[in-house]
Design a binder for these strands. Structure first.
Lengths: 357, 357
DNA sequence: GGCCATCCTTAATACGTATTGATTCCTGAT
DNA sequence: ATCAGGAATCAATACGTATTAAGGATGGCC
């Protein structure tokens, strides 16, 4: 154990065999340039290398070559805490799988917590750049950091559509617009004409996309906006039974609910319904605009699901594409969501009193 | 956008500010030597660094002997595939959490798959060394790789006890010996005198430790070994109803089953019992020597559980300790398992015929 | 004004590898 | 004997950082 402290280098091999370090390098790196080395020398070098227990110093090799063959994964929220892991884990899975398949290593930027908040620029230094490129993930991002990042021209791909004014950036996103639009159609086909959309507060792109889809859907089926409600809820989802009841008596027959990463908004809707004595779907249809992790024995909601694992894989693919073909062009990919029929919608109930029209 | 492709270096910063590269290094590395730099210069450097989007080149820093502030995580099995993730995930969780808390980043060596098998030395290069140190995990390891790694004197900690002949290495392991020993005692207290131990084939340390515990336990309670059975099963657990029946008629009243990473061995026991018409625990008590991931509605086995998350955290702690105080001493830590009572044991049934004594 | 001490900055060097233009050595032909 | 030409090897250099001994400026003190 108390043997040599220093690891053997190519110089050690060279000295032992009686050649130069350059020659050793030619042999060790193998491949193309290696066949110009005499077979005898070649064998002698390899033998000495084995005897000394030589291994290439990865750092030195990387230093020379530029690439690190590492991809970074930065998450604006901590991914591993258990309450959120079911939501984020499939992305991770996909990213990891693709990273491995392409022969890269994956660097998790776990350290980036500055006083509880996660920031890219800790100490004025962008740590992400240790990797060749980076996959970003998470809802509660710092706009400043993101803008700065774009400005730096560092290759990255966001999972989820993100906007930075005046810049085009690369992402792979779920097609919330289309999926929500389809949901509205589905409800309209069942006869619903008065809808309430419960959107998350905080003006994030995923929310905006759903809202666009909502309005587009209304247009598609010819529903006027004034019979409908758009109601913001905070992340921990507060909605009262009274509020729900007031909507229903105003003629609303179906709810579209935007889920958060956990199941808080859905739980809130369940509570409100119970409170108001409203049955789902008999008295009110409910659809989820997404596919949050639900506990055991949860209701089989009518919803759509994101191909999260595939999104992770695609993000890596785009990133590598970005690295290899360095035009300045952003890569943008929208993937379709899969509708899940579920059992939380039904025909609208017979109107108790005459609703407006 | 089509700006410089090359990443800015300390030299670029130096040129811009009008100082030397050395001064920039002093500022960037921060800490002790940093306070001999004038505050004005210091700020100018940091500012320029931010503007240029400078990041320290990990490879270069490492080459020079500095730290990368990266810890590696190398798994001999793929961790992410879903069927095994429930087993390995808590380790990951612990490792990630501790890594983050100590301000390090976590490098997952996903790339190390050479033709399906995971090898540390892919192409003669030990890639682990990019990181400051490494946590190793997994059952099906390559002994050659491990021996080589030890021989290289690279700091690492294994999760799980591992042996390399003639070397002492660092690990944090579950105390399988003690836990199994206690299980034998528990069974003996209930009146069982003839036990069968189903061990995994493949001569791994965790298996050997359980077997030691088994024999120690027998000694503790004064059971002779000749009324007991030690039966190896392969990873996919084949055991027939006939075999089970033959044991029982030879007087065996309780089974100790070593679980694999999935639940295959347990499923095999269930099958064999059903096949032979043996009820658990009425006709035969069964304990698990571990805590495998079980599906929904699985039997509440009498077993013991590993503090997997804690083990992950501890591994990181040991590793950092190893990095900071570099004596040649290995760090070894055994953590106790927690017994879980369960409902799969009972008193031994009345002997159907006179069993041997 | 000269000398020293203090503070800041620099120049030089090492780390281990990959690459390339130059050099030596050989062989065979003239 | 000389030279061309190829094969095998070498010497030199770059990569980006950390470190340290040495240099230079500034100010104080007598």
């Amino acid at each position: 154990m108390a043997a040599q402290r220093r690891r053997p280098t190519q110089v050690d091999i060279a000295r032992r065999v009686g050649v130069s370090q350059g020659t050793v390098s030619l042999v060790i790196s193998g491949g193309a340039a290696s066949d110009q080395v005499a077979e005898k020398t070649r064998r002698a070098v390899l033998e000495a290398a084995a005897e000394l227990g030589y291994t290439v110093n990865a750092a030195a090799r990387r230093l020379k070559g530029g690439r690190t063959r590492m991809l970074g994964l930065y998450t604006f929220e901590p991914v591993f805490p258990v309450d959120q892991r079911d939501f984020y884990f499939p992305f991770l899975l996909g990213v990891e799988e693709a990273t491995a398949r392409y022969g890269y290593d994956l660097l998790l930027f776990s350290s980036a917590t500055a006083g509880g908040t996660r920031r890219i620029y800790a100490g004025g230094v962008n740590r992400l750049k240790v990797a060749d490129g980076c996959v970003l993930l998470g809802r509660h991002l710092h706009r400043d950091d993101l803008a700065e990042l774009v400005h730096e021209d560092f290759p990255f791909v966001f999972i989820g559509r993100r906007e930075v004014p005046g810049e085009e950036l690369s992402y792979v996103a779920a097609d919330y617009v289309g999926a929500t639009r389809d949901m509205v159609r589905t409800l309209a086909d069942r006869g619903h004409r008065h809808l309430a959309y419960l959107k998350l507060s905080g003006d994030q792109e995923p929310t905006r996309d759903r809202e666009s889809g909502f309005r587009l859907g209304l247009g598609d089926v010819g529903i006027a906006g004034d019979g409908c409600v758009v109601h913001p809820i905070d992340d921990h989802g507060v909605i009262t039974g009274d509020l729900l009841r007031s909507w229903l008596s105003a003629g609303v027959t179906a709810l579209l609910v935007e889920p958060s990463e956990d199941d808080s908004t859905i739980a809130a809707v369940e509570r409100a319904a119970a409170e108001a004595g409203v049955r789902i779907p008999e008295d009110c249809s409910v659809v989820l605009l997404g596919d949050p992790p639900l506990g055991e024995g949860a209701r089989d909601w009518t919803r759509f699901s994101l191909p999260r694992e595939e999104m992770g894989r695609e993000a890596v693919r785009l990133l590598l594409d970005l690295l290899d073909n360095d035009d300045g062009e952003p890569r943008q990919l929208n993937v379709a969501c899969t509708p899940i029929p579920g059992v939380s919608i039904a025909e609208p109930p017979a109107p108790p009193k005459g609703p407006p029209r």
